[in-house]
Design a protein around this nucleic acid. Structure first.
Lengths: 257, 257
DNA sequence: GAAAGAAAACGAAAGTAATCGAAAGCAGCA
DNA sequence: TGCTGCTTTCGATTACTTTCGTTTTCTTTC
């Protein structure tokens, strides 16, 4: 393993190593590349933000190593209280008679769980997890635009359903994201899904981002909404005050829950 | 089982083991993974919290799945044997590489359950039950054309996804029906769904009807395929011989299973 | 079948070691 | 001069252990 390579080369080599060996350790990579463990952790964080690896304690594994059910379960398990609070607050923004779009994030699923007392609401979603959740809610009308099954997120992906959605009048769209920063706005780890979300943001009358504190300051590989395009951000109390202030300065109504 | 795996990998492997063997024991897992029983119990607790396993005394069993030890009678309640046989026969008509349409009938679901050993198969379906079933089959590519949720059948209805389907080359379409007679052909109880099925029959290169004996001679309100449009009927041994003969006279290959 | 005792399993708590990530500072380069 | 990439430092977090009181299950006896 060569030393004195560029940052980009090192990250490429690290990714290659993760994929070849199936598991890497921070300590080993630090020794191999002749850089500090903090630098390796920074590299792995970048690769994780692009959805290429999954960070583990002491190292990383290839994205896709874990089964779809477990990947989904791990995502749902993160910040459960924050997501529930954000979900409840998101549901409170939904009025009887509304047509809303819920994306495939686990925070949008938390919103769906709080719709049991709403009436005449239409939910448009490509999340199979949300469809399953709303099967027991006869008061909610569910529309699924369609696409190809992506097991890791129990959702349907692709742009084919956009024509369907364009025919609908969607009052509010609720979007999770991999990260949010003032410069990059809302970002995702999948370029393809970011492209679809970008169109959806344009189709919704009101855009609501639902993010827990861990998402602030983090950047995924593709942006899908600038701060100016966001009407509301619902987040929890741990959200960093400085970034919240910058979002508010850009005109976003930030709800801390 | 290698040591030095991460927590996520261990839990993935534990979940896999639960699903493969149908039952696991804390003591065995502790020995296999080289960690304490408390750690294994913590792992199982997390998997149980997420609804992936059910904790038992001393171990765990799969969640939402029949354990191999459960009685055959309970399996029968789960799905009648005739449908399972028809489903198995339907799956045998599906070749690796095929793109097939499965409708939202419970017999089509039986087909989906027999696809675990197929490769490179694309399933096009609006049945949420089938999507859920195929979540565990990474070898099967799933496409969902989309529509409005119909809770009674865990499926999506409506003609909106037809444009999507028209772009696809579907070798075989598998259709359940409310009834089949020589005069009316295949019939359904929903005029709306019959209209969609009629279009779908026209889009599939080969049309396969999957019907148990109770469907012969029965008539729903709307027809969606004449006998001449049907290539194969898969049915069980109790199908009435005279109606079977008439179908055969009309050029249908009837498979009795 | 009920009761009693023993064994197995559980989960909470506390402790330890490893790992993490934020922050600050420095060097090199355009 | 400002930016990038790297370092060190250090408080926080994670993952695992052992211990021990509690609970559940099994076995034996009546």
């Amino acid at each position: 393993m060569p030393k004195e390579s560029s940052t980009q080369e090192r990250r490429h080599d690290i990714l290659d190593s993760v994929q070849r060996s199936g598991r890497v350790f921070v300590a080993d990579l630090s020794q191999s590349f002749g850089v500090s463990e903090v630098t390796i952790r920074s590299d792995l964080q970048m690769l994780a933000d692009q959805g290429l690896v999954v960070r583990t304690h002491g190292g990383a594994i290839p994205a896709g190593r874990l089964s779809p059910e477990l990947s989904l379960a791990l995502r749902r398990q993160q910040q459960p209280l924050a997501k529930d609070h954000i979900g409840a607050a998101g549901a409170e923004l939904i009025e009887d008679g509304d047509a809303v779009y819920l994306d495939t994030s686990s925070t949008a699923l938390a919103i769906a769980r709080h719709l049991t007392h709403h009436r005449y609401v239409t939910v448009v979603t490509n999340s199979i997890a949300i469809v399953n959740e709303l099967t027991d809610c006869p008061n909610v009308h569910v529309v699924v635009p369609g696409g190809r099954l992506r097991r890791e997120t129990a959702s349907l992906i692709g742009a084919d359903g956009l024509d369907y959605i364009r025919q609908l009048n969607i009052q509010k769209g609720f979007f999770g994201a991999h990260g949010v920063t003032p410069a990059e706005g809302l970002t995702d780890v999948s370029v393809e899904e970011a492209e679809v979300k970008r169109v959806l943001v344009g189709l919704c009358r009101q855009v609501v981002a639902v993010l827990d504190a861990t998402k602030w300051g983090r950047v995924g590989v593709a942006s899908f909404a600038t701060l100016e395009q966001i009407d509301v951000i619902i987040t929890d109390q741990d959200a960093p005050a400085e970034l919240v202030a910058q979002a508010q300065a850009a005109g976003v109504a930030v709800h801390l829950v």
